[in-house]
Nucleic acid binder design. Sequence first.
RNA 1: GCAGGAGUGGCGAAAUGGCAGACGCGCUGGACUCAAAAUCCAGUGGACCUUAAAUCCGUGUGGGUUCGAGUCCCACCUCCUGCACCA
Length: 855
Amino acid sequence: MASYPFAEIENKWQKYWAEHNVYAVKEDISKPKYYVLDMFPYPSGAGLHIGHPEGYTATDIIARYKTLRGFNVLHPMGFDAFGLPTERYSMVTGIHPSIATETNIDNFKRQLNLLGLGYDWNRSVNTTEPSYYKWTQWMFLKIYNSWYDENLQKSRPISDLPIPDEITNATEIEAYKDACRLAYTANIPVNWCEELGTVLANEEVDEWKEKGYTVERRPMRQWMIRITKYADRLLNDLELVEWPVSTKEMQKHWIGKSEGAEISFTIDDTHSVHVFTTRPDTVFGATYLVLAPEHPLVDVITIDAQKKAVEEYRISASMKSDLERTELSKEKTGVNTGAFAINPATEQPIQIWIADYVLAHYGTGAIMAVPGHDERDHAFATQFSLPIIQVVKPLDDGSIDVQAQAYTEYAISMASDNPNTVSFSGLPTEKAKKKCIEWLEQSGIGHGRIQFRLRDWLFSRQRYWGEPIPIVYYEDGTKRTLEYDELPLTLPEVKEYKPAGTGESPLATVDAWIKWHDPKTGKVGRLETNTMPQWAGSCWYYLRYMDPHNPDTFCDTNKEQYWSGKNENSGAIDLYVGGAEHAVLHLLYARFWHKVLFDHGLVSTKEPFAKLFHQGLILGEDGRKMSKSLGNVVNPDDIVKQYGADSLRLFEMFMGPLEAAKPWSSKGVEGVNRFLNRAWRLIADEDGKLLSSVKKGHHDSPEIEFVLHSTIKKVGEDIESLSFNTSISQMMILVNEFTACEIRSHESMSAFIRILSPFAPHICEELWQILGNEHSITKADWPEYNPDKLQQSTVEIVLQVNSKIRSRAIVPSDADEDALKDIALNDEVIKKHLEGLTIRKSIIVPGKLVNFIAN
RNA sequence: GCAGGAGUGGCGAAAUGGCAGACGCGCUGGACUCAAAAUCCAGUGGACCUUAAAUCCGUGUGGGUUCGAGUCCCACCUCCUGCACCA
């Protein structure tokens, strides 16, 4: 028996959908909205891999299901097309990145259409289109022209910034504003490779180091975004969204809120070191200080005899990447500066060291070392024979040896008394902390402080293929942002896509860019040569889908409100599906961006993504990650050719839970293909005509009706919970049952095809037509199940003696406890097992079991 | 090390505290066929047993709660994912 003609059918319906614009989306306030979104793909030259259809099919099923249920569904697709791989391709081939991007996008679209995904391509976006990045630039300027009002806890226009009275001259006012802007420039260490004459992205560093190049950390002027101002809101608003616990945890950890104190340690009359600690209660145990090698005080305080050693250490530290710094420092390294500071609690002098286990960018870049109660400090103190003293003892007064091992528990302070300063021996850690902070604040030595692990966002890239930053610098030292009517600032043509060799982007080699004739001022200026990172365009694309062609605004307010659902304390997008690899950065940046827009009244919700789901990885047939070198890569095009898109879609959904990592199975695809063939044969004959055994008005047996209605119920519920694998199992049961029927009712087949259609849209369109329907199945209604049909007259229960199953009985489903007990007591097998025993207790669960406890 | 998640047949997996293994793959047998493929039907956790019935064992390990635990609690082991000197 031949397979159903999937190739012909899929081709036919894909054409039909395109020609009839079946998936066109319009705002329709008469209907409830549902916004389901896939994470923005990067259109790589390699095309779709087998993992793409997984998430895309899942959202497509949801979108089709919600549509049948009467929702107005937005399920768009577009391309995050700026980025390094394309730029590298252009460096090698000389082909303009926009050409390469276009080719790749066309190929992606072709492949996506082959899968039967119901996108309205008219709503597609592409971050590299000037009409799109115009708004990315506009939003960047919104951020640039904002400051964070700590009192109101929100961003406000820079024009509202109160300027302190003492600042009067124009240059100083400008400098003050610049210091408050949410986007600012700073000298930040980047990965600089002298031989390549370029800055490398973190992910490139290892690759080039392997090839023998040296990469060092060198400070360079970079654009930064003050995402740290939003740390608290990014943390707290996680409560508003329904996300996987693991992802929320990862974001919380990334933001990393710690409460503690900043304490000043005096060196001499003019210098002091500020440290951040989460354990101010252990200040009496601080026996030395450690500065990060990059700490600015190092130059000032190092004594002459140590200068050489300190300088050598600093150079070697700068040559290490962050990774090496942590890897190599299983054994702690460091150098004594020879300087001393006074411990403000004990009033005793303590040594000041530098060590690369102290990070320059966290806290104050300096720590008070408490080796008795911190493992890292303990390791360092042991290494360099520094004093270790105990200032915390266990709650139970048990004995511990801090010389051997740091004691890090929260317990009871001890040996923490100085009549001249402060005393808190005997206090539990929390109280000791509080008392210490009170003392620090009263005496002006320090204060309580909340520290975040989150760092400001490094926003500039020294690359060509990214959004230009629309700011111009004049020779007289002034600068201005481009105005609305000057956007977009489009990328100029360049001869070479290679970096300039100075650490600047290729734009620095373009005369028209660095000697830009400003039509507004008549001056000549240098346009910013840095471009934005790839994250920028993906921070707001979901908003553009709501109104993709609007030339006057990034998204019309009414449309934004309709598609966002107007619930301030929720997310705009009902369901967001994508890989867990974006659990931190993309999602954090997009949330931040959204919150800035929210503060400016440009969007109506606090969060972008109400519900988030990560699809699991599809592994090779051998259970390992798919990779070219392992030769276990499965190409979706091949599967579509061999079994059809419907089989591919169905199999990816059937493999297992959507969130789980699952190995591919070529036999498994055959299995679902077989299922589709069986479904086909329930309705159509070899010539694709309606079978005469499918009869209108035929009454299926109650058993068959039970299967049909429980399937309708289960499939609906399972789609809502994204349990596609079990809904497919249930439909397989249905097909198996109907296969055994000689006559099948037309109505049942019609219901079945509609619930299968979100999963396998092509074959269902065809069968829908064979069943005599004129319009596309996408315009049909989801069938309702009839609860009456789910009532069965009898049910099988188990009969137990002492909790062991001894027998079974078919009983009326409405039998009450007494009746069930009677039935059980009269069961021959149960009688035998109860012989000679006394029933102590009977447990009767109607519809399930009867259990006699007897001895 | 820290955080999150997962361990169930030969394999992918399913099970509101109530019949473990639905559904699919694979395998075995049968029907159809000259034959094969495809299709259809039946069987398929393990032990004991010629077979069947019956019985017993069985959800990573060890405890516990419960009439009853894959499911809840405690401890541990293994694997995956992320973070990792963040003071």
